[in-house]
Design a protein around this nucleic acid. Sequence first.
DNA 1: AGCGTTACCCGCACGC
DNA 2: TGCGTGCGGGTAACGC
Length: 331
Amino acid sequence: MPELPEVETVVRDLARLVKGATFTGGSVARERNLLTPDAPTFISAITGRRILGTRRRAKWVVVELTGGLLLLAHLRMTGQLLVVPAGAAGDAYVRIALSLSDGREIRFRDVRAFGRIALVAERSDGEAGSSLDPASPPLLAGHGLEPLDPSFTAEVFGGLIAQRATRIKSLLLDQRYVVGLGNIYVDEALWRASIHPLTPAKKLRPEQVFDLHRAIIQVLDQAVAARGSSINDYTAPEGDGEMQEQLDVYQRTGEPCRRCGSTIRRLVVGGRGTHVCRTCQRPPKGIRGAGTARAVMGPRWSQGATPDTVGATRRERAAALRRAARQGVVA
DNA sequence: AGCGTTACCCGCACGC
DNA sequence: TGCGTGCGGGTAACGC
């Protein structure tokens, strides 16, 4: 699942591969993946544009084009941006293909088809508009702080969350506060800071806010350096990442905590699979331990997460076995 | 208004 | 082999 480190890797790879290239046309196999404009307008508007550079905003890939246009891509769950020779073998999941004058093409491949491509005008303030009209309102309005920007300080972060009663995990997943975090890195940052995901944000002590702020930056920096986590479908134009090998809790249900040896547990917070060490991450007062309080688990929580279960689902068990085999541990 | 929850989108893999 | 279901990023809608 592409989060900030994965999107950042795609953006950097794309810059190396296609900066300076010019679009000569393209095809839209599935128009629902195109947020705006309609397919014929999209193809005609992008044809002849040259790629000036790439950047990232939140989890959006932003490709800067001549003529004041921005090509945006959100990968959601399974989206990929690939740069291949035109005519290279593809499959049914290539939703949009854009040809380049040098004989290559950029392909947006997306198995689950949740991802979105948009072509919009850059506004005078540098933000992406919501249409080809540079006077259109910002498309990405409402996004929060960039966690790797110097403006993301512990003080600002603390001020954002101080009044919020919502669970800290749900808040961190909400892109209106801090952008770029998804399920993987939220679980990882909370483990690093030894904070339970069900803790109400406003109940965090000042030192916990400080630790969490630092953990967010550190885990994202480390993941960017590792080119992100290649889990399921994620890959970048220049290849997979390696952060999945360095994750401490995500999809490690049933395995020992690397800090204290306790078994990593799985619960559901805000409808999302969540991974914790219940020894390092003490549940907040008034909320019973994970796996016992159905009221805080939600109806969709996966049954079968018993203490001696290795992985809450068969898929997780299989992943745990593969991981064990890869690391030379006899399962 | 804030917060929690569900439905939706979609394809896959799981599990019966 | 075949069918029902959980999963999940983001958004919308709903209820308390």
